[in-house]
Design a protein around this nucleic acid. Structure first.
Lengths: 181, 181
DNA sequence: CCCCTCATGTAAATCGTTACATGATTGC
DNA sequence: GCAATCATGTAACGATTTACATGAGGGG
């Protein structure tokens, strides 16, 4: 139950239309909570029906016409409630680790190339995070908001750093395996 | 589409009944691909219907009676196919990072306690992984299977190490915030 | 007019979670 | 015989994914 709260957060940061939200879920917020435009439109409908957000008065309710939303006080209250509530960490799922475990049983054919591809993807993501850090968090500024957002970005950077290092280590191991083709 | 392949892997490692699989998905395989018994029974039914696994001849098909499965050649082939195929990394979702971003907008009340709780959980998981490493991967042994499985365990250890360090860092930042809790 | 892009949606299928149901086995 | 536990499922719901549908606006 995090998607509505991701949307509320995004709308509080800046009122947006469905497609604008979709684009922001392709960067930024989407780095740790992804969503497709279908999920977003459906959820916007629910949030509006529940009185947590409303369409900006300027926007007509015509299909194909842009329609922007803003958060109502009830929406902000719900987001604050959710943020303060204790939550269990969801068990993480990682298909790549599962694949390596499978490869230990059925052989490693094809895996190494994909490890290399994933390494490139993670290196690209890491570089992107580092650019954002340089651009948005230059040394010296430290409002509470900035520090919290920087902390989140730091998690992203450190996670991608972990993956790139682990993948490099994995590729070294593969180079060493007897049947390592 | 990874659950059937997680089950095939588990069954190749050792033929099992539904409940035995469920227990193994609470440790071991479940550390990076969790599943409930309901998911597992449903998926076992599909895999059997598709001819990828079969019930061991010894087991009668009686409700309430233990029923063990083994992987058929077609199942091993499907697992090998899946393992060798390129896959896109799924976008990760992390509710805790989302919460921090929300907290930057609606305030940090309640978050700090939960960060501490999560830190304790991750420290426990890290200790568990380290025990497994000491027990199952003593220095010196290195069959291909062992090395692949150790690699997977290493990812778990490094991920939990990341989380504990990041959470400690986050708690330091919180201690420093003006409206810090 | 046609095509492309922007923008908003609908529909269907699959996956995941929560709650419940049923039978067999074991210990008391 | 009864309760607890082991074991296998069903049902219902919600979340997610994939594919498709519809309309507006602009460029050629």
């Amino acid at each position: 139950m995090s998607l509505p709260h991701a949307i509320l957060t995004a709308l509080l940061e800046k009122p947006s239309s469905g497609l604008e939200l979709t684009r922001r879920f392709d960067r930024s917020i989407g780095y740790f909570w992804s969503a497709t435009h279908q999920q977003i439109y459906r959820e916007l409908g629910k949030l509006e029906a529940d009185g947590l957000i409303r369409a900006l008065p300027s926007a007509q309710p015509v299909r194909g016409q842009k329609k922007s939303y803003e958060v109502l006080p009830a929406g902000r209250a719900e987001l604050a409630r959710w943020t303060a509530a204790a939550q269990e960490p969801r068990p993480q799922r990682d298909a790549l680790l599962l694949r390596l475990r499978a490869a230990a049983v059925v052989g490693t054919a094809g895996v190494e190339d994909d490890l290399r591809r994933h390494l490139a993807l993670h290196e690209r993501q890491l570089a992107e995070y580092r650019e954002i850090e340089e651009r948005d968090f230059p040394p010296g500024r430290d409002s509470s908001q900035d520090r919290l957002r920087h902390l989140v970005l730091r998690a992203g950077i450190d996670l991608e750093t972990f993956w790139t290092q682990w993948l490099k280590h994995a590729l070294e191991e593969f180079a060493d395996l007897p049947d390592g083709g």
